[in-house]
Amino acid sequence: MEANTYQEGLLNQIAPYFSGTAYQQGKEVTLSLTDFRQKWLMLFFYGGDFTFV
């Protein structure tokens, strides 16, 4: 029974909070999800630098 634990999908759920450091135009910046409140936001996950995106 425990193997059948149902994992709820993320669609239409509140986007989980995240924060971290990013490279942006030559600088190191700190950003978090709350910086993008009231905006459409697209997260572009990719496997690794120097691979095709």
């Binding site: 239409n12 759920q13 999800l33 993008f36 936001l41 997260l43 572009f44």
Partner: peptide, 11 residues
């Protein structure tokens, strides 16, 4: 992967 989040903060 691409995740699109609305202005209301929903996926």
């Amino acid at each position: 992967a691409v995740i699109i989040i609305s202005p209301e903060g929903l996926i």
